[in-house]
Amino acid sequence: MLRINFWSGLAVTALATALLVWVIPTHGGGGFSFGLPPQLVATIGAWIMLISAVTLVMVSIAQKVRSREPLLQGVDLSGIWHQTWPFLYVLLFICLAIYLPLTWIAPLLIGGLLFILGERRWLVYLLCTLTPTAGLYILTVYLMRIGVV
């Protein structure tokens, strides 16, 4: 947990700094106001993030020094891959959904993931892919009348 606190705190510190230095001043809006300037609440939020994250990093460093734990540890590439591929898989189908309706690609999305997760029974494929797809089709085409999405 110490290592997680340290690295996540560092990431939040970087994000909060970027927000304070660039994002909020550039994109936070401007203009004259009687009450609250448009950027003020977002800036307060970013300062809360920054102060909390910096404190978290400092406390984690102090604890690590006391417990003599290393800050760096060997990266488990296989673990990272297991955590990353689902995101890439869904992103692929989101990209496909730009060009094709989700109803068309839904059987592939569900079936592909079932296959990756080890399912091999054709009846399960049939039920799991066709039922939700048919449900979406009936909902959008016949009930909502917005066409195939």
């Binding site: 909020i24 809360i48 993030m49 909390s52 978290l56």
Partner: peptide, 15 residues
């Protein structure tokens, strides 16, 4: 501290 950091992000997105 983590709760406050998450809250800060929520505040920013809320604006």
């Amino acid at each position: 501290l983590k709760g406050m950091a998450a809250g800060g992000l929520g505040i920013i997105l809320g604006t």
